[in-house]
Amino acid sequence: MHMTSAPHLLTEDRPEFDRLLDEALRTANERPELAALGERLNAEQLRTMAMGASAILTAAAAAEYNHFVKVREDLRDEALTASGRAGEHQDDGQDGGAGVSAIVAVLAPVLAGTAMLIFLLVGYSLKMLDPEPAFAKTMLTAGWLFGALTVAALLFAVIGLLVTAVRNSSTEVAAEETVVIPDELSRAREAWRNALLERGIMPFLRDALADPSTRPGSPVRRLPSSRMPNLGYTAPDFTSPGTSGGATRPGYSPPDFTSPDFGGPEHESE
Rank of each mutant, 00 (worst) to 15 (best):
M128A: 08
S218Y: 13
L41M: 06
L121M: 03
R47C: 04
A153N: 01
G96M: 07
A61Q: 02
D256Q: 12
R187G: 06
S170G: 14
D13I: 06
P109S: 02
T243W: 15
V179Y: 03
S240K: 14
P15I: 10
V71F: 05
V166R: 13
F135I: 09
A36T: 08
A188G: 01
S186M: 11
L37M: 08
P241T: 06
L149S: 02
L41Y: 05
T81N: 14
T243D: 13
T11V: 10
T81D: 13
S244I: 07
G160M: 05
I118S: 00
D207C: 03
T171Q: 15
L223D: 05
A191R: 04
S169I: 12
R167S: 13
S240L: 11
G97E: 15
A142V: 11
G245H: 04
H2W: 14
P182D: 08
A60D: 02
E268R: 15
P236G: 13
P224F: 07
Q94K: 10
A102S: 08
V110Y: 00
A24L: 07
E177H: 08
A152E: 01
V110G: 00
E44I: 01
A59G: 06
L223G: 03
P109D: 00
M128P: 02
L185H: 05
A86D: 07
A188Q: 04
L209R: 01
A134Y: 13
E30W: 04
A60C: 09
A153Y: 00
D22P: 01
L161F: 15
N194P: 14
D211T: 07
P265M: 11
T178E: 15
K70A: 13
A175I: 06
A102K: 13
A6Y: 07
M116S: 00
T171K: 12
E270Q: 07
L9I: 13
R221F: 07
T234P: 03
D130P: 02
G242T: 15
H89W: 04
G99H: 09
R167G: 12
G232P: 01
F68Y: 12
P224D: 04
R199A: 08
R189T: 11
T48M: 15
M51T: 08
K70R: 14
A208R: 01
A157I: 07
R19W: 01
G251C: 09
T239L: 14
D77Y: 14
R47G: 03
E172L: 14
S226L: 10
L46Q: 02
F146N: 00
A165G: 09
